[in-house]
Design a protein around this nucleic acid. Structure first.
Lengths: 349, 349
DNA sequence: GTGAAAGCGCTAACAG
DNA sequence: CTGTTAGCGCTTTCAC
């Protein structure tokens, strides 16, 4: 059985297949313990021995088995990032922040796409429970607050951008209410009386906050909230378009439209084009997230920028705190946003 | 040591922390082997015993440790997908294909973003070498053909969309030469004499093929290839814009521009807008990939569609063949593309 | 500075 | 049908 393995030619090993620590030890004429020490940079290995072992490792292309190592050390040095979809370019920059910070701490980042499906999400979360990864960062969960709180209590788990409403969990977010509040105020100051909002019914954390910001600003300006001006949809181009058509077909159509995503805003602008309305003049439109297309669209699209890279690094920081002590009190870190006015809200650039 | 663990209250276990198969066995008053059998749906377990074990598992929230299991079985049932960047919405649909097919075969998909960095890519490929995952699908590699061939020889590894030129590896692709050949012919038939191309210098497999298609069509129509009409760049909005400005500032500017990505096309159209050229009339523009924005841009953007979902499923099929026999001969599967003409090439819709 | 041996959590062969 | 046991590949005492 194993003797077969022991009879292999050295040459076999240079192919690097199925080599294990025992093979390395034998070839280097030392013990597995020593090989392990070399792999882990343990200083108390004689220079000669180390050289010899390193030579064999180099020559054979040996890579230690991750499972054996993790099983023993009880850590994988991997973290899982759960994102709802890849169709949104929004997550790209955040991931870069996550990866940069994770790397600093010696962790590798794995990404899982849940496609907004509970089953998928639970399957990936099992990677946390089965200790396949040391911790996880979630950018949106379909689970309920209780489930999330439980997970966060048991495992290093933090949320980013879209924490679960009512869950006890650390999170990195922006002040969504404030962002839309500012935008709505801007519109009111500009003289708009009929301000519409295209929101969603998926991402409750941000949506409720954003709708609140919208309503708060209206109330303060004594503009009565008009139910027919608040639409809910998926965050897609198509829905942005169709809902804008609905809005504009009302007897008293809006002169400004706030969209909770850039894709909705693009859809909205497409609709306005077709209706031969001048965007930024007849109707102001603003999106959310400052995805790269917004500054290249015609007209350029006003939007709200989130500090995406920093959201990513902050999420990792929060996770690291959990690694140190998973019972540390959960915190919500709020990062600053920026409202960017471009042509779609009548600005020169 | 372990006795401590054995003295824990049942109540502890309902929290699900650090439970292992031994604990379950003890609580269910049976052996670890039986618990293992239950976990793996082995039919030869008495109904009563199975019930008892399942009850404990349910109650305690026990999830078997992935490392222990994989270490023993020598398979993780996980596959790794390496993508160069998340900023391109292109990969989203492909991933869905990958996931659908992988799930069918009982595999879970992990995504790694290499950001076009060698170091990153190598780190993630180590997951293959360290047997952390059973196989990998790469959507672009910075490694050389020899390295890729070696990896493919040793591990289940396939490429998709952008295989490494000259590497011996299975791949799922479209006929990039043919696609651009068709487009160029379309332009020539329409009467264009000055046809420009904005290509890249990253994704050699597709770029060389596409440039060949462009040149082939020109040659056949006896149009001399003009070096100044072929630009190379990153696949970004900004570069599409600046290179188009360069192209249009020539003494004899093009009347049609072929872009190897939709973002380049959008950048190009932005530039033409600024130069007050009518896109689809003064100048035709076509992109590549049929990302969702193309049908919502103003004007709508002509483009070439790849069968993204199928590319994903096909890649998984190829990987499964490698799981069956990693020495099976490598094949290149070519899937059909579709040229879509919209307003940016003068079509009504 | 080094090696023998225990054991991380699991599965599978074997014995009963 | 069930339990005992070996061992997957690794790290880490503990002796020497």
């Amino acid at each position: 059985m194993n003797s077969l393995c022991y009879n292999r030619l050295v040459n076999d090993y240079t192919k690097g297949d199925k080599m294990n620590i025992k093979d390395v030890a034998r070839l280097a004429e030392t013990s597995v313990a020593t090989v392990s020490r070399v792999m882990n940079n343990d200083p108390k290995v004689a220079k000669v021995t180390r050289q010899k072992v390193l030579a064999i490792i180099e020559e054979s292309g040996y890579i230690p088995d991750a499972k054996g190592r993790s099983l023993r050390t009880q850590r994988s040095n991997k973290i899982l990032v759960l994102i709802p979809t890849m169709s949104n370019q929004f997550y790209s920059r955040i991931l870069q922040g996550v990866e940069a910070k994770a790397e600093e701490h010696g962790y590798q980042v794995l990404v899982a796409i849940t496609n907004l499906e509970v089953i998928q999400e639970e399957k990936y979360l099992d990677m946390l429970k089965s200790r396949h990864v040391d911790g996880a960062i979630s950018f949106f969960s379909t689970l309920d607050p209780h489930q999330i709180s439980e997970i966060a209590k048991k495992y290093p788990f933090v949320q980013c951008c879209e924490p679960t409403l009512g869950a006890d969990v650390s999170s990195a977010v922006i002040d969504n209410r404030e962002a839309i509040y500012e935008v709505t105020q801007d519109f009111i100051k500009k003289g708009h009386k009929r301000i519409a909002m295209i929101s969603g019914d998926y991402y409750r954390f941000s949506e409720e906050a954003r709708e609140k910001g919208y309503k708060d600003a209206l109330r303060e300006a004594n503009i009565k909230f008009d139910d027919s001006l608040l639409k809910k949809s998926f965050y897609r181009l198509k829905e942005g378009e169709s809902l804008t058509v609905e809005l504009m077909n009302q007897k008293n159509p809006p002169t400004a439209i706030i969209c909770v995503s850039d894709s909705l805003a693009i859809g909205s602008i497409t609709a306005l084009h077709k209706l031969e309305k001048k965007v930024g003049k007849d109707v102001d439109v603003i999106g959310f997230d400052n995805t790269s297309i917004t500054s290249f669209y015609y007209p350029t699209i006003s939007t709200i920028a989130q500090p995406r890279f920093d959201l990513g690094t902050t999420a990792v920081d929060l996770l690291m705190e959990k690694f140190n002590d998973n019972n540390s009190t959960n915190k919500k870190v709020i990062l600053p946003h920026t409202v960017i006015h471009r042509e779609s809200t009548g600005c020169a650039k």
